[in-house]
Amino acid sequence: MVLKKLNGPLSRYFDQTLDDEFWGEKTWEKAESKIIKETVNTVINKSGVPADKIDCMFAGDLLNQCISSSFGLRELNIPFFGVFGACSTFVESLSLGAIAVEGFAKNVLCATSSHFCSAEKQFRFPLELGNQRPPSSQWTVTGSGAAIVSKDGQGPYITHITPGKIVDMGIKDANNMGAAMAPAFADTLITHFLDTGRNPSYYDAIISRRFRTYW
């Protein structure tokens, strides 16, 4: 589920697109809760796994106390692990979900959401403020994604998890998050290749977030 960005190569894969950032709600935060709620409903419908067969859920978002997830998902009545990994929340949810399935669970719900307006409001400046963004600044997506990790099924499977280490190369510019995160990304990739003995050509695609084209 995503707002507006329909000109990308992935546009036809989204289940639903929205025309405005409020989606009939009074605030951006409520809209974000609704977005994650509807996304999770979509994944439950598409997977055919009813909510009462889901053992637990790992979910999170960018807002304080993960309010989008906790308010959006409260009616599901599923044991909830709140996750905050900022950009990595979804992959972190999937990783923890896979570990839970390896251990005790049969079905685990993993979800995340973000909203450009609510994130700007929380972390930067009001949208109405007449300032300029530097060319290196990042744009938070307005959207949500969810998945159900199950013990059985036809795949795709989560076979390996390489959690990233915190690599701080001392970047202080809050508007250049790509530069702050790139070393950790490189470190995680190297760790993964050393760990598995694979090399980059083994993969069809290596996907990351938050890096602009000039990186």
Binding site: Q132, P134, P135, S136, M169, G170, I171, N176, A179, P183, Y214, W215
Partner: peptide
């Protein structure tokens, strides 16, 4: 950190 900062400064687009 310093060589990385220099690299970032070189690579980042300027206003």
């Amino acid at each position: 950190k310093q060589t990385y900062q220099e690299y970032v400064d070189k690579k980042s687009p300027n206003s």
